[in-house]
C-alpha cells in the first residue's frame, strides 16, 4: 500500500508499532494479507471493516494472542521498540506484559474486584504498594468511585459495563505501552458504551490504543487514525478525519458512507 504512506509522511507522530507486510495464515490460508502501517504513540487507532475481514486477527497478532490458535503462522515483521515481536528469541509472555488486551466480552476472573486488578502485577513480581496500584488503576478506568466500598466483593456481581471497565483497569494495572481493544463495547448498552468511549479519551494521554470496532460512528468519534480492512487487505490507512471525509480509495468511501458492509 503506497498511497497511505504519502499521507503519513506529513505527520510527526511517533510510531510505537510498525507493521511491515504482516500476513496471518490459518493452516496456510491467509486471513490477513501483507498489512503495513504504523501505530502512533498516545493516539487511538481504529481498525474497521466488514465481518471476517481479518481485523480481529490482525489485532490479536499484535500481542501474540494468536499463538494459542492451532495452525496459525505469521509472515512479515512487527516492530516494537526496535524488535520484531515474532523474532526468534522474543518471549511471547514478555510481549503481553507490554501490550495489554481487552476482549469483546467482559471476562473478569471469578475473584474479588481487588484481586482481579492485583492478579497481573502480583504474578509479574510487582513490589510497590498494591493498594495504591489498585486504586490508581480503578480510577484510571473511571470505576473507583463505584466500587471503592466493595473492593472485596466478587467481580461477577458488577454490571456488564462495570465488568468491562474492570477488565480495562486490570489491563492498565500492568502499565502496558499499548492497549489493544477487541470490540470492547459490542456486549454493552449505549450508556456503558459512552462511558468507555469517554474513558478512552482520558487514557490516550498515557497509553497508545488500538481498537477493533464494527461501529463506524464509534471509530469516527474516538479515533485519531483509522485503518480500513477488507478481505484481509488493508485498503486504506490514514487520519480518521481524512478517512471519513476524503477517502482516497473508492471502497473506503463506499464502506464509511454505508453503501455496503
Amino acid at each position: 500500500m503506497s498511497a497511505p504512506e504519502t499521507e503519513l509522511q506529513r505527520n510527526h507522530d511517533e510510531a510505537v508499532l510498525e507493521l511491515q507486510e504482516v500476513s496471518v495464515l490459518y493452516s496456510g490460508k491467509p486471513a490477513v494479507k501483507k498489512v503495513s502501517c504504523q501505530i502512533y504513540k498516545n493516539k487511538i487507532t481504529a481498525i474497521i471493516g466488514p465481518s471476517g475481514c481479518g481485523k480481529s486477527t490482525l489485532l490479536r497478532s499484535l500481542n501474540r494472542m494468536n499463538d494459542f490458535v492451532d495452525g496459525v503462522s505469521i509472515e512479515g515483521r512487527l516492530m516494537f521498540a526496535g524488535q520484531d515481536l515474532y523474532g526468534k528469541d522474543v518471549d511471547p509472555v514478555e510481549v503481553r506484559r507490554h501490550i495489554g488486551m481487552v476482549f469483546q466480552k467482559p471476562n473478569p476472573f471469578p475473584k474479588s474486584i481487588y484481586n482481579n486488578i492485583a492478579w497481573g502485577p502480583s504474578i509479574n513480581g510487582y513490589t510497590g504498594s498494591m493498594d495504591e496500584l489498585v486504586e490508581r488503576s480503578l480510577s484510571q478506568a473511571a470505576l473507583w468511585d463505584e466500587v471503592k466500598d466493595r473492593l472485596h466483593d466478587s467481580a461477577l456481581n458488577l454490571s456488564g459495563g462495570q465488568q468491562q471497565r474492570l477488565c480495562i483497569a486490570r489491563a492498565l494495572a500492568m502499565e502496558p505501552q499499548v492497549l489493544l481493544m477487541d470490540e470492547p463495547c459490542s456486549a454493552l448498552d449505549p450508556i456503558s458504551t459512552a462511558h468507555i468511549e469517554d474513558l478512552m479519551f482520558e487514557l490516550k494521554s498515557r497509553y497508545t490504543i488500538v481498537i477493533v470496532t464494527h461501529n463506524m460512528q464509534q471509530a469516527a468519534r474516538i479515533s485519531d487514525y483509522t485503518a480500513f480492512m477488507e478481505m484481509g487487505h488493508l485498503i486504506e490507512f490514514g487520519e480518521t478525519d481524512q478517512i471519513f471525509t476524503r477517502p482516497n480509495v473508492k471502497r473506503t468511501e463506499e464502506y464509511v458512507t454505508g453503501r455496503f458492509g
Binding site: M65, V93, E94, R96, K105, F109, G120, I123, N124, C167
Partner: peptide
C-alpha cells in the same frame, strides 16, 4: 472453565503454569 478466563490471564503476561495454577484450577 471458560477459554475467555485463560485468555484474560495470558493477556496479562502469565505463563501457562501461572494460568493453570492460579486461574484455571481455582476456578
Amino acid at each position: 472453565v471458560p477459554v475467555s478466563l485463560r485468555q484474560a490471564a495470558y493477556a496479562l503476561g502469565a505463563t501457562s503454569y501461572e494460568v493453570t495454577t492460579r486461574v484455571v484450577v481455582p476456578a
